[in-house]
Amino acid sequence: MKTHLAAALGSVVLTAGTLLGAPAAGAQTAPYPTTGFDITLGASSLRGTLTWYNRSVGAEGTLRAVGCYGASFSAYGASGRELSAWNTGTKCDGTYPFNVGLPADAPGGAAYVKVCLDDVRANSGTCGRFYRP
């Protein structure tokens, strides 16, 4: 009888401890906001996602170059001041993945990111401005 009582009591204590230690449903943090981008210049393209963190912006995607192209990313604060920049360098005839973090160490982080796809041979390009959601 003592064995059954001890086992039952142990089970109740274990179950209560598990339930009390579990996080509340909905207490999970929300994912960081994201913005998709798609810039096309001729047959070449720059596609991906910007992830907006508190003091940085992640840029992940692919550069598809038909000929020689480069991609650049610049993060700007609310005042319009450039906070950081990064570029792929010249890439020719292929698909190139990238995954980079742009520091945005300013109150509120980056307000927007300027994303450019440049045809390095023709000295031309196209850019898009993508705002924090």
Rank of each mutant, 00 (worst) to 15 (best):
L19S: 01
V120K: 04
Y76W: 06
V113Q: 07
S44H: 08
C68K: 10
N87W: 08
E82V: 10
N99H: 12
P23L: 11
F73G: 00
D118N: 07
L50Y: 11
A78Y: 12
A71H: 00
P31H: 08
G94T: 09
G101V: 10
T95F: 02
T126W: 01
G42F: 07
A104F: 15
G10Q: 01
T18A: 14
G48L: 02
G67H: 04
R81C: 00
D93I: 03
D119G: 02
L41Y: 04
L117F: 09
V113C: 10
A30P: 02
P31V: 10
V100H: 04
G80D: 05
V57E: 07
F73D: 00
A24K: 05
V13L: 13
G101F: 14
N99C: 03
G26F: 09
S45K: 11
T62A: 12
A16K: 02
P23E: 05
W86A: 05
G101K: 07
A85N: 14
A78H: 08
P33N: 06
G128Y: 01
G48P: 03
Y96H: 12
R64C: 00
F73M: 01
N54L: 14
L5N: 07
A8R: 03
A111Q: 15
L20R: 04
G36C: 03
C92E: 09
P107A: 14
A24H: 11
R132A: 09
S56W: 14
F130G: 10
P33D: 04
D105H: 10
G89P: 05
N123S: 15
G21K: 08
C92Y: 14
F73Q: 00
S74C: 03
T40L: 02
G108F: 06
T29D: 11
A111Y: 14
G17N: 02
P97S: 08
G58H: 11
P23Q: 08
G10E: 01
P33V: 07
R47K: 15
S45T: 10
L9A: 15
W86N: 13
A59H: 00
G108A: 06
G77E: 08
L63F: 04
K114Y: 07
K91A: 10
V66Y: 04
P31C: 02
T18W: 09
S79W: 12
Q28G: 13
F130K: 09
P33F: 14
L9I: 13
A104K: 13
Y112D: 08
Y112H: 15
T51L: 09
F37M: 12
V57H: 06
R55Y: 13
G94E: 11
A111M: 11
T126H: 03
A78Q: 14
V115E: 03
F98Y: 06
T29M: 08
Y69R: 01
N54G: 11
A59W: 00
G94K: 09
P23T: 11
A6Y: 06
N123A: 09
R47L: 08
T35C: 07
R121L: 14
Y76R: 06
G17R: 03
R64E: 04
C68S: 15
Y131F: 15
T35F: 07
L9W: 01
D118F: 02
R132C: 05
T40H: 10
L20N: 11
P31M: 07
S124Q: 10
